[in-house]
Nucleic acid binder design. Sequence first.
DNA 1: TTGCGGTCATGGATGACATTGACCGCACAA
DNA 2: TTGTGCGGTCAATGTCATCCATGACCGCAA
Lengths: 150, 150
Amino acid sequence: MDDIDRTIISLLSQDARRALSDIGAHVGLSPSAVNERLRRLVASGAIQRFTVAVEAQALDLPILAFVWIALSERADEAAFRAHAAADPQIEECHHVTGEWSYLVKMRTGSLADLETFLAGLKQQGFLGRSQTVLALSSPVPGVFVPPCAG
Amino acid sequence: MDDIDRTIISLLSQDARRALSDIGAHVGLSPSAVNERLRRLVASGAIQRFTVAVEAQALDLPILAFVWIALSERADEAAFRAHAAADPQIEECHHVTGEWSYLVKMRTGSLADLETFLAGLKQQGFLGRSQTVLALSSPVPGVFVPPCAG
DNA sequence: TTGCGGTCATGGATGACATTGACCGCACAA
DNA sequence: TTGTGCGGTCAATGTCATCCATGACCGCAA
C-alpha cells in the first residue's frame, strides 16, 4: 500500500469504470501493472467490492433516519445484529460509545415503515429505549474519496 | 424505473463489474437492452456513479466518529456546508431534526485529528455545541443493496 | 379491423479493453 | 559475484461494451 495504490483507489472512488490505461497514465504505469496492483488491492480486502452509488429518491426511499438504540437487558446482542443485517432498509449499524448501544442508519419509504421497524424490535424483545432523528438534507453527498497521495 | 431496473441496480450494487450478458441472463434481456437501460439509469441520475467500497483500515483511518453539531448563532450555514464538503475526512453531513442541527460522519487517522477538526470549527465561529460519538464496530457493513423486485 | 407512430428489444459487426504469459531490470542476501 | 524474488514492460489473445439497422409489440384513431 504505497502512494500509487492510494491514488488508484482515489481514482476508482470517483469513477470505477476508468480504463486501466487511463489510470496508468495518471500514476505513470502500464495497464498491466495497474491491473496487477488492482488484483492485489482486491485480494487483500483493501477494495471490498465494486459497486454503484444510487440516488435514494429513485428507489422510493425518501426517509433517511438515524435511530439510537439501547438494547433491553434481556436482549441477545448477536441476535440483534443478525436482525439488523437481515433488514434491507438498514444501511449501517454501528456499535457506539456513550449513552446508546447502537446507531442505525436506515432508509424507508415512509414514516410508517420506520414505526413498523421499531415495533418489530420491541416485539422481539431487543428494544430498551430508542430515539429517532430524521435527516432533512445532505449538504455533503456520501462520497468517500480517500486522500490522494498522502 | 420498473422491477427490471431495480433488479439491475441491485445486481450492480453487489458487483458493479458484472458483464451485461450476465445481468441480462438474470433479468431476461439481451446485453444491448441491459446496456440501454443502464445508460438511462445513469443519465436520469438514479445511478449517480460507479465506485469502489474501501476498507477504512487499509487507508489508515481507524477512527469512525459521529459528531453532532449545533451551529453558533452567528454561523453562516452555507459557509459551514462548504467547509464540510471540502474536508476529505467527512464522509457524510446531514441536516437533521431535533436537538442538533447537523450530524457529521467522519473518518480520521487518530483522535487528535478529530480534536483538530472540532478546534477548526470553533476557530471559524461555526461551532455552538457539539457531541462526539465513536463507533466501535460495524456489525452491518455499509452495503446498500436495494430491495430486489419490490 | 386496419393503419400508424412510438417504444423497446434483438442480433451482428466492430473496436476497445482486460487479461495473460514471456521477458527484463533492479534490489537484496548469500 | 551470483541467485532469487518482486514488480515492471510489452505483445498477443479473447472477451466484452458499444453501435446501428432491423423487427416486434402496444396503444390509439379512423
